[in-house]
């Protein structure tokens, strides 16, 4: 019979591959944040309190480009909206837990932990007890890794002040490409990306980074419309399975 501690350790162990993926991401975030003009405490506090990689990356690049607070917060909202899908998927498994469990598990719900833990909840061969401890193990592994990597990156960034001119912001571009390209497996996804990219270029001169919002909205609409249109014409069933 598994103990809570064992379930916790299993959750942390199964998250290990995700930790490796987040490692460079966290270090680069730390250096980039310092290079963008964020102070050391603010950089660390952002990783400790926000704990959302893509949103943090985008926020520091917006800070560097002189964007206002409201723009950054609205962008954070849009970029993190996907987490609502995750919490909706996890809800059946956590809704009977007390709030003292729900609050921390929600705070630590990231893309990586969702991927690992949701699979575990669906796995009929896994023991049914203490699955929330497994969830917690995955969370703590991701969180401590993210904070440690941010710290390393921030220390690197502040000991090498010339780093701002190194073009490290390319690391963000490379990371985002590495995330997006594998997702472009259906025609609607591809169209969504093409439309978002084109609108972002065309609307780049708009103030307050409005071009980014406009492009994201256009991309989402293009994807949904393409999916519907494809489903209606019978070429695509649901638009999710057919590879390009």
């Amino acid at each position: 019979m598994p103990t809570p501690l064992k379930a916790f350790a299993c959750g942390a162990r199964d998250t290990l591959p995700m930790l490796l993926g987040a490692l460079p991401f966290g270090i680069i975030f730390g250096t980039l944040a310092i290079a963008s003009g964020l102070s050391m405490p603010a950089t660390l506090l952002m990783s400790a309190l926000v704990f959302a990689g893509s949103a943090q990356f985008i926020a520091v690049s917006l800070v560097a480009s002189g964007a206002g607070l409201l723009v950054i917060l609205v962008t954070t909202l849009i970029v993190n909206l996907r987490h609502m899908l995750y919490s909706a998927s996890m809800l059946p498994y956590v809704r009977d837990l007390p709030q003292r469990w729900k609050v921390p598990l929600a705070f630590w719900l990231t893309d990586e932990t969702f991927a690992v833990v949701h699979r575990h909840y669906l796995d009929a061969s896994a023991p049914t007890e203490h699955k929330h401890w497994y969830f917690l193990g995955s969370c703590i592994a991701m969180y401590s890794n993210w904070f440690a990597c941010t710290l390393i990156g921030a220390l690197l960034g502040s000991s090498l002040p010339g780093m701002a001119g190194w073009g490290l912001d390319f690391a963000m571009v490379a990371t985002f490409i590495g995330i997006v390209v594998p997702l472009l497996r259906t025609r609607p996804m591809l169209l969504s990306a093409v439309v978002a990219g084109a609108v972002a270029l065309a609307a780049h001169a708009l103030p307050y980074k409005l071009g980014l919002m406009l492009a994201a909205l256009a991309g989402v609409c293009a994807g949904v419309l393409a999916e519907r249109w494809g489903a209606e014409s019978g070429k695509l069933t649901g638009g999710v399975d057919e590879p390009v």
Binding site: A88, V173, F176, A196, L201, G211, L212
Partner: peptide, 25 residues
């Protein structure tokens, strides 16, 4: 269903909208 379909396109649309200008401009 429309909302949940739309949400699946958000990461691709937002990230591409950041990537393309960062590469070309």
């Amino acid at each position: 269903p429309l909302v949940s379909r739309a949400l699946t396109y958000v990461p691709v649309a937002v990230l591409t909208a950041i990537i393309v200008p960062a590469m070309l401009m």
